[in-house]
Structure formats: structure tokens, C-alpha cells
Design a protein around this nucleic acid. Structure first.
Lengths: 252, 252
DNA sequence: CACCAAACGAACATATTCGAACAATCAAGA
DNA sequence: TCTTGATTGTTCGAATATGTTCGTTTGGTG
């Protein structure tokens, strides 16, 4: 039994079951554990497998990546943005919060406030803030989006239109350099527009990954916002737009 | 069984159900609780999971409600009730689900169904079922109750009245021996009545602790239900009422 | 608020696994 | 035959994983 042949068989075994122990391989090939270790280390060096204590397995490209990592994507930046944003919201204020992971982090940051009145179309936000006794939380009705627990649709924007609040906190999927605000879902855009219409002040929260990113549906322009919270300096064109429309920029 | 392999399986379990208890994992892997604790702490350190007293769950705010459902009173009975109830619901059905921990467990049990259309005023149910691609989930709008994530109020029952569904799944706070259905919150009663009115069949789920328990607001009578699911034989008077109104009793 | 059981973490003991160094074996070529 | 390099076996101290014990913390209940 040659080394290369053994390597091939080891790889095959790992592909089959996702994992092999050293004992198993010792039994199969009738060689010493040390030999197997050398084999595994070599294969690991070539990035073919993932070495572990007691054996080896496939590279950990399992399921947990998509949702989990998306949630922590730019987590630090988002937390800083959230911390800055909640500072300008006084206790007792009324506010809209819409969809987006950034908004969920903002919701968490708001837990230290007192007596807020919140209208949201974000299931997670409703759940986070609804747990706090002294908050009044209203969820907008409508269809629940599978991907992120957002509530969307015409009924939802109608519902939003019943309210007029101090602040509207908007998460955004993309900002073009001409100042266009973009989102992927037309039904969500309806809701965001309703929020903008019914808010005395519009707060836009966005991390650097959103600048220049394209999306399908135009939501409005950056001039409709009163404050923009971000973690890196926006491109020049957007800076100019901010200036023109007197949008206050908060950089963290 | 190596540590890393165990870690991967633990993550898988948590992704599947939102929460795992230490006992569960001890049973699965045949190791001591201390080992599981070390595993969970390590995974928590890597931000993969969210550690709780007695187990661990996803970090997502809404899904961790499944953590709370683990502490539910009479959990085992409720799980059996849920299993029996979902059996009479066919794939593709449309249904209302209202407030209550039993209903949350029922929602979980429904995850194996296909193509359901659900209208609910329960944030947790919306979150549980909304995650499944092929379900259409609609949440009723209104004020969020702090204690349990229920959405209640006049706007909510108005919203419910827009729909007419095959089934109405109702959780109940108390049943008097004369067959009165009771709840603690007037605003929730409005919603429940709207659901009963707009359902072709009304399914009542209740464990033994509810029989004879008093509550403030009268919701209706047991005669309005078509099926009653419970874990122990009801008192005689209620049995008589079930008979009179031809309510089908399912005992698990 | 006091109580109790379950869960927890720290500390230690034990068993397993690891890697490094060295010896043994073998094949190929000078 | 001798040398060389590659591969494998062997040994041993270090690192890692798990079990065990025990005192502390936590969460639920009366």
C-alpha cells in the first residue's frame, strides 16, 4: 500500500461520511497512528481536509455560514452606528423602525431608553422591544417575509399611514452615488416611503458596504433624510448631496 | 467521537430546532454534562450560538423564544396535544393561530406540513412559521403585549375579520364547568372571537391545568368549538356539554 | 424573601492524542 | 556493496479531551 494510494482512500472516506477518526484509519490500513497522523497533517497542509483532535473532517463550510455570518457581517460597525443613532433619540419619543439587520441592533441599543413608542414592520424588532415593560410596541400587519421576518405589502404601508411619529429609522440596501436610496423588494419600499412621509425626522443608518451597491427598487433620495449614520466617509458625490440637502452626517 | 464532530452536530441540532438542552445533548452523545458545557461555552465564545441556563440556542432574538418554550408548564402534555392536533390539518390548509404557549408548540409541530396559509396574532408563531419558505404567513397588526408577544386590540380583530380560513386554532386560559371559555385580556378575547367567527372549523387546545380555572373575560362557550384536544378526561359537566354540542374530543 | 434543586464553573485526575526525534526498513542508483 | 532518500515504526514528554468532585450561582416556588 503506497502512501499516495492511502491518501486517496482517506479522502474518499472523509468525503463519504464527513469525518474519520484516526483509530478507524489505523484499523483500515493496518498502520500505526503516527503514520495516519502524518497523512492527515499532509492532507490538511494541502487544504484538502480539516484536521481535528482524534481525526479529520471536511472543511467546515457547513450550513451555519449564510444566516449567521450575515448577521455578524460588519457587526462592530453596526453596533457603533447604533450607539451613535440612539443618542439623538430622547426618552419618551415615538418612532418607526423598519427592516434590516442594522435596525435590529439599533433596537437592542434602544433597550436602555425609557417609555418609547415604537411602530415597526420588523418581527425581530417587535420581539426585542416588545419584551420591555415600559415600551409601547405596535407591529404592522401583513405578510411575513421568509428571509428576514420583515412584514411587507400594501396592507402594511396602509397600517403605517395611520401613525405620525417623531422619528423614522430606516435601513437601506444600497445608495447610489447620485443619492438614490435603493431596496430589493418593492413591497418593502412602500413601507419605507410611508415611514418617511409620516416621520418628523428621518434617520438613515447604513454601513460602508451599502455605498454604491445596486438594488432594484428606488426608494427615494438621500435628501429626504435628516440624519445619516455611517462608519466610513461616503463618496464625494454623496457628500455633496448631503451638503446640498442639509443632511447631518454622523460618522463613527 | 471527536470534539469537533460533536460541535458540528450540536450546531446542526440548534439550527434545526432553535434550542437544545444539555440533557438532550448528554443523551445524544453519551458524555458528561460538563463536557457539553465546555462544548457550548466554546461555541458561544465563537459567537456561533447563544448560551442559556440549561442549554443553548440561536442568537437570533426571535428564535430564542424557543428557549422559553422549553420551560413551559406541562411541556410534555402540550407536545402530545400538538402532535394530535396537527394530524387533522391537511397540507395546503389555511388557518388562524392565536395566542398561547400551546399554540407555539403547535406551530413547531406544523413545520412538517406543506404549503400552509397562516394568519396569526402571535409574534412567536409568525417567527416560527415565517421562516419556512413554502408557508404564507400573515401577522395581524396591533399593539404587542409585553408578556408573551401577543398582538391584541381592536385593530387586530378588524384585521382578522378580513380573512376566512379552514381552521381556527385557539388556546384558552380557562374553562369553567358550565362550558364557558375564559381569558384574562379583553383585547385578546376580541381577537379570539373574530377567529371563531371566520373559521370553518374551530380547534381548541388545552391541557388539564385549564379545567375549572377562572379568568376574567368570557370568550364564548365550548359549544362553539368543533374539536377539543386535551391530555386528561375533562370533568363530567364538560363531557356532557361536549356531547350536547357534538364537539369531538381528542384525548392524548 | 427564603428555600431548594438544578445548573454552573473551577480544580483536579485520568485517558487519549499529538508532535518531535530517532531508529528501522526498503528501493534505487553509484 | 555502499549511499541516499523516502517511508514507516517506536518512544516519550507535552498538549488536549474528558470524567469527577465540590463549592457557588441561578432560577423557580412557596
Amino acid at each position: 500500500m503506497s502512501q499516495s494510494h492511502r491518501h486517496a482512500l482517506i479522502l474518499e472516506k472523509i468525503q463519504a461520511s464527513g469525518f474519520v477518526s484516526i483509530d478507524e484509519l489505523v484499523e483500515s490500513f493496518q498502520v500505526t497512528p503516527q503514520t495516519i497522523r502524518r497523512d492527515l497533517n499532509q492532507l490538511a497542509m494541502e487544504q484538502k481536509i480539516c484536521r481535528h483532535h482524534g481525526g479529520a473532517g471536511l472543511e467546515s463550510s457547513t450550513v451555519n455560514t449564510s444566516y449567521q455570518t450575515r448577521k455578524v457581517l460588519n457587526l462592530e460597525a453596526k453596533e457603533k452606528i447604533a450607539a451613535a443613532l440612539v443618542k439623538i433619540i430622547p426618552d419618551g419619543a415615538s418612532l418607526f423602525i423598519n427592516i434590516g439587520t442594522t435596525n435590529e441592533i439599533i433596537a437592542r441599543a434602544l433597550l436602555n431608553h425609557r417609555h418609547l413608542q415604537v411602530v415597526t414592520n420588523n418581527l425581530h424588532v417587535a420581539s426585542i422591544l416588545g419584551a420591555k415593560e415600559e415600551f409601547s410596541v405596535i407591529i404592522a400587519g401583513g405578510e411575513v417575509r421568509h428571509s428576514d421576518g420583515g412584514v411587507i405589502g400594501e396592507a402594511t404601508s396602509d397600517f403605517i399611514n395611520q401613525f405620525h411619529m417623531d422619528f423614522g429609522i430606516i435601513g437601506i440596501s444600497g445608495i447610489l452615488s447620485d443619492g438614490s436610496l435603493l431596496d430589493f423588494d418593492y413591497r418593502e419600499v412602500l413601507v419605507a416611503q410611508a415611514i418617511i412621509k409620516n416621520s418628523r425626522q428621518v434617520l438613515l443608518a447604513t454601513d460602508h458596504s451599502k455605498f454604491g451597491r445596486n438594488a432594484m427598487v428606488r426608494l427615494g433620495t438621500i435628501g429626504q433624510a435628516d440624519h445619516l449614520f455611517t462608519d466610513t466617509p461616503p463618496p464625494e458625490e454623496i457628500m455633496a448631496a448631503l451638503d446640498e440637502y442639509q443632511v447631518i452626517l454622523h460618522m463613527v
